[in-house]
């Protein structure tokens, strides 16, 4: 998972079907950074910077800086990129990489664990179920065991 080639391979694996646009097509126009809702608040965050660092083989620095976790996955950069580069998908890939290296924010890891154990982010307790009944809503199921199997590993 270290070289640009492997990251590209992984990207290709998931998205070749939609039509992959190579990263090196980026000519640094800055459109992505211009429309990014996060960049408006946090100047240091920039989709263009992320692409550039990947092209320069600076994956390690990128992952260890945790900058990729600023992305809200809103897809605007990807939709507006004049070269059709799948920027949001790339950043998602980098987030996956970060997770694998144990560098993701605690909240993210917690959510993964929650899904593994109970199949939902929020498990409704008795109190919640009573409120549902009062409102005329059907009772909800409990935890889903299947996910424990599926999310293993």
């Amino acid at each position: 998972m270290d070289s640009l080639m492997e990251a590209e391979e992984k990207l290709r694996g998931f998205r070749e079907t939609i039509g992959s646009q190579k990263l090196y097509a980026c000519f640094e126009c800055g459109h992505c950074s211009a429309c990014c809702p996060v960049k408006r608040i946090r100047q240091e965050y920039s989709p263009r910077k992320i692409i550039h660092m990947v092209l320069l083989d600076m994956l390690d620095e990128l992952i260890s800086s945790n900058i990729v976790w600023y992305c809200t996955n809103c897809y605007l950069c990807q939709e507006l990129c004049p070269q059709g580069i799948r920027i949001a998908d790339l950043i998602l890939e980098l987030k996956n990489l970060s997770f694998k290296r144990g560098l993701s924010p605690d909240g993210i890891r917690r959510q993964f664990e929650l899904l593994k154990t109970q199949g939902r982010i929020y498990l409704l307790d008795e109190f919640d179920q009573k409120k549902r009944k009062k409102a005329g809503l059907p009772q909800l199921g409990g935890s889903i065991d299947d996910l424990r199997v599926l999310l293993e590993g």
């Binding site: 976790w69 998602l92 987030k95 996956n96 993210i108 890891r109 993964f112 899904l115 982010i121």
Partner: peptide, 15 residues
Amino acid sequence: SEFSCCGYPIKASDY
């Protein structure tokens, strides 16, 4: 009742 979480929260962890 068998529906689980859709999976979106862990997209960033493991697509």
